[in-house]
Design a protein around this nucleic acid. Structure first.
Lengths: 147, 147
DNA sequence: ATTGACGTTTACGTAAACGTCAACTATGAC
DNA sequence: GTCATAGTTGACGTTTACGTAAACGTCAAT
């Protein structure tokens, strides 16, 4: 169901923060399927507004979605991503909750830093492979740049 | 089947590069199960020597295994990891193969660099969460350091 | 009024990455 | 010999992260 463009004359240009996205729109933008987005909702990762049955995604939802996908690219499971997202959302009034939040943030940061070391090592190794192969090609009189 | 510790007297201390590992040993070291290691073998990621049926892992196999696990932590699939490992192994005599190797290396590096940007963004965000929470705790007169 | 584009739910299917037996084998210790 | 320990090969089960299809609703345009 296409979202009805309300017929108010000279509607102010949709400010980015107020824009509303359809599920297909987001699916296109992020190169995933609508099914995937609905699945994330089932798993409690996003909670779009509804107009009847149809889902309406806010700019905030969009950011969340892109955040989720970034997490995926880094190898986090959806469960982990949910936990990470919750870190931003949790109630920060209670003292005990604040300490718990701090603890979990630090745990995650430790994990992230490990990933970073892993990644740096990986990159270094592959840069070396590239350099060696490029050198070998040069020695054989081939320009490694024109593929 | 325990690997027979050959009864040669004063066996030279197992030089690291010559050491042989049992499957259980590697499983313990990397905190995975033997089943997992065998599975990786089924998938063509490692190929240990055999003594009869029993698998014998060399130092080289061990390195490969740790490499695989690092890849996993970074969110690569086993199929991707296999491809990455193959980059080190492929025949580098043919010119066409060299160019292909270069091409694929560069593709992977591009992928890795994207991951790095993702990761850096992630880390930055969580450091900010930590800082904010720590500041809030301080303001309430709590030392964020003693948990 | 029908076609098409887009939306919905429900439900079963599937690929990846192992876990978990079960049933068997080989070796060293007693 | 037999027991404990460590290894082996199937084979089926499980979790995660969606894919795929069915069956239907709704609006705009033809």
């Amino acid at each position: 169901m296409p979202v009805a463009p309300s017929a108010v004359p000279a509607k102010s240009p949709p400010r980015d923060s107020a824009r509303i996205y359809s599920i297909a729109e987001l699916a296109r933008e992020f190169a995933i399927t609508a099914r995937t987005i609905r699945f994330y909702e089932d798993e409690g990762l996003i909670k779009p507004r509804r107009q009847g049955l149809t889902r309406l995604y806010s700019a905030h939802d969009r950011v969340r979605l892109s955040w989720i996908l970034r997490g995926k690219r880094l190898g986090f499971s959806l469960a982990e991503i949910k936990e990470l997202l919750d870190l931003y959302q949790v109630d920060r009034t209670g003292l005990q909750q604040l300490r718990e939040l701090l603890r979990r943030s630090r745990l995650h940061i430790t994990d992230l830093e490990r990933k970073r070391r892993d990644l740096d090592a990986h990159i270094t190794e592959f840069r070396e492979v590239e350099a060696q192969v490029a050198a070998e090609l040069k020695q054989r009189g081939v320009d490694p740049e024109n593929d």
